[in-house]
Every structure is written in C-alpha cells, then in structure tokens.
Design a protein around this nucleic acid. Sequence first.
DNA 1: GCCAACGTTGGC
DNA 2: GCCAACGTTGGC
Length: 137
Amino acid sequence: MANWLFKEEPETYSFADLERDGSTTWSGVANALAQKHLRAAKKGDRVFLYATGKEKAVVGVMEVLADPTPDPTDEAGKRVVVAVKPVRRLAAPVTLAAIKADKAFASWELVKQARLSVMPVPDDLWARIEKMAKGAT
DNA sequence: GCCAACGTTGGC
DNA sequence: GCCAACGTTGGC
C-alpha cells in the first residue's frame, strides 16, 4: 500500500465535486513522470488531494478504487487513468506555506517540483500532514 | 499579471 | 540526436 498526492485546480474539480459524484476517474495526466507514478498506484492506496491556484493546500483524502486502466482517450495507449473515491476532508487544510515552512518536507516533490501533478507521499510525510491537519505542529 | 521552472516541439 | 524557441503551469 502506497500513498500519493494528486494535484488539481479546484475550479476544475474540487473535493466537493468528488463528494457529489461519489467517485471519479482521474484522467488528463500528461506528464511522463506523473504518468509513471500514476501507473504505480494500486487499489486501496491512499491519495491526498492538493488544490492548486487560489487554495494551495492539501484539502482531503481519497482512495484508489481499482488498479490503473488504459486511458480510452489516448490513441497511443500509453496513458492510464485511475478511479478514486472521496474518503474525508481534512479538518483543516494543510497549506503549501505550512509545508514549505517545515524542513521535513524540503526534499519532497511538492516543494521541489512545483509542476508535477502526481507524486508519491512517503509514510512519514503522510503522517506529518495528517497531524498538521488536526491543528498540531 | 508577472515570472521562473520545466516540458515539448521543431529545425538542423 | 541536440538544442533553441516556445508554451504551459503554478506560485507569488
């Protein structure tokens, strides 16, 4: 079981949209490295949803519903998509500013590679964000 | 709205 | 196959 972080512009698809839909297919990931990460996702993996743009914060937790499947819109047949469902919103969103302020995250892709849209979350960082979401430091 | 980072494209 | 030009993304 692994942990991931997916980025999305909340104007495009927010956690509220996901809650309304019950589940969704995470598609439109074009970047090669992001695709590599996405292919490594497995059913049951946990996923943080990070809102870009105005929010810039980890806002909720999702769960991978099934192993990746080929993207039907990709003629080359190389891309995959992943079905996810909402698990819960974070009590308090963990902002990028808070993450950047914590040295523990210094080498994480979210901080180092702003444009990567799918990335792994090491267990310790996952736990740390969960803790921050409860208001602890 | 601007700019830096970085991925992609196209000419050679 | 290299690299410059260009486009896009996302933080500020």
